[in-house]
Structures are given as C-alpha cells and as structure tokens.
Amino acid sequence: MTKHQHDFQPSTNSQPLLEIHDLRTYFFTRDGTVKAVDGVSLTVERGQIHGLVGESGCGKSMTAMSILRLVDKPGRIVSGEVLFKGEDLLKKTRHEMTAIRGKQISVIFQEPKSSLNPVLRVGTQLIEVLRIHEGKQRTIKRKDAVEQLRSVGIPDPDRRVENYPHEMSGGMAQRVMIAMGMACAPDLLIADEPTTALDVTIQAQVLDLIRKLRDEHEMGVILITHDMGIVAEMADIVTVMYAGTAVEEAPTVELFETPLHPYTQGLIASIPVMGQVKERLEVIPGNVPNLIDMPPGCRFAPRCKARIEHGLTRCEVEEPHMIEAKPNHFVRCWLYEGES
C-alpha cells in the first residue's frame, strides 16, 4: 500500500498552497439550520495529495464547494478563512472568483457523464476553459483540445474531440473532465469522488492519471472519497470527517497504522481484508446524526464504543478539541485530550 507513496516533505519556510481555518457552511432551511460544514481546518501543500474521507453526507463535498465558493442557496459560508496562496478566497469579489475557478483551482466531479453538457461537443467544452482563462479567442483551436485529450490518454483524440458526451463511456468522460480540469495547469485540483461511478479497472487508470499529472505539475490535490482503499493508495495526508467536522488528520501511513479516533478505527476495521475470512464485516453501529439537531458534545459519542469502554462522561456534554496527540497527528477526541 505504500509503494506509490509520494516522498512528501512539508515545506516549512514557504506558505502552504491552501489553508482552511475553521470553515463553516450552513444551510438555512425551513426545518432548521443544517450545519453541513462545521469548523473544518486543513492544509494542502504543493505536490501533495490530501485525502478527505468520511461517510456520505459528512460534508466532504461541501467543504470542496466552499473552497470554490460554489455553495448553492439556501447554503452560505458563515465563517472561516480559505487562504489560497496566502489570500482569503472568501474575501474575493465574484469577478475575481470566476477568474480563479478553472484556472488556478479546478474540480473533477463524481459522475462524469452527467457533469458534461449533453448538447455541446467535448472539444467545445474543452476549448471553452482555455478561451475563458487564456484569453486567446482566435488562436485557440480544435488542435489544442485534441492535445488536451491526448495528454489524458484518450485514444484517437482527433475523432473523440467531435464526440458528444453521450457517445463516450464513463471512464472516457472522466478523462475528458480531467483534461478540462488540467487545461490551465491549475495549482490545486479538487477531485470529488472521481472514481465512484467507474469500473474498478477504469478506477485504477484514472487514479494513476491523477497521480501522474500531480507529479508533472507539482499541483496540490484534494481527493474526496469514501473509499479507504483509494485513500491508502493515493493520499499523502488524510483528514477524516464526521458529521460536518474533521475528527482526525495524519499522514496516511501513520493513520492506517495507528488510527486514534474511534471513528477512524471503525472505518479501518470495516475494510474487508483479502484472504481473511470473517463471519460478518465489521460495522460501526448507529447512524450519522441529523445535521440539524447535532448532539451536544462529541458528534460521534452516540455511536462510540470506546466512550463506554473507557467510561468517559464528558463526551456527551462537551465538544472535544482538535489536538496534536502525536507529532503531525491531530485528533478530536476526549480520549487523548490532556495527554499531550
């Protein structure tokens, strides 16, 4: 699992590519306030793949959309800082944000076929990104689009550039999405469940491609997934999210070897291991809490076995803080608070 690990050295002297501080994105609905992202902090360095894992609805995608300020109504980013190359994206004007999207930060979405416009040729959609950001209206031609398609390994790009999305397979469409994301050589790529809708063999190809492009362009990647296997394979550093907040952050090897948070432990235990026969797969009992009526205290407390084993009482009353339990290993759990 570590053979592809990138030799990542955190740079201490220069500023990180992306720093999120205490980001909160709430949805104001009739039924109440949905705290989709509730105090997430994370850092992405250049050339680093930062995995963001958690169950569906834990706020992974909303964190990504908040970085780009593409939160749909009734959602709103209520507080926090998103420092991209030292500048707070939340303070940019709308105009400045459109200039950043697709150029410096781009996204690959989960369902490639529905993420491409069905009535425009893929070539047209590719050229559009270049025209918006490179500003060379006339000089950008079909051949640039063909080049982009070739660079993501699409066979016969000369013909494919004329295709409509419905004429492509899912894997092919995802390559087009990646080509679109990479067209302007962004500094940060957000891959939101890029392989969830794809076959396993295609998954590997797409992940390889993302890794290769990362190596070539030294860009930072935020890889959002619920698949612990993909995280283990791809990420340099992992943030585990639960119910809108980050509960643990550690370098990948460290996280898989010594997961600290009971939720992370549960996630890792639930990965089936090849060759190991089990009566039943491990599951974490209970459900993700309702994001409107969040339990007071630790959000994981109602499902937490460790809480009972250790006889902790304050879990249900007081929310734990994100602390550095070990060097570079952060966790939000009462089990470790006071130890460091």
Binding site: L70, G102, V107, F109, L116
Partner: peptide, 13 residues
C-alpha cells in the same frame, strides 16, 4: 451537474 461543472470552470454566471 453540468451547470455546476460550468461554474467550476470559471464561466460567468
């Protein structure tokens, strides 16, 4: 979805 993609590409509203 593809509207979200267009926005993420930096297309003006």
């Amino acid at each position: 979805n593809y509207i979200r993609t267009a926005r993420a590409k930096g297309v003006r509203e």
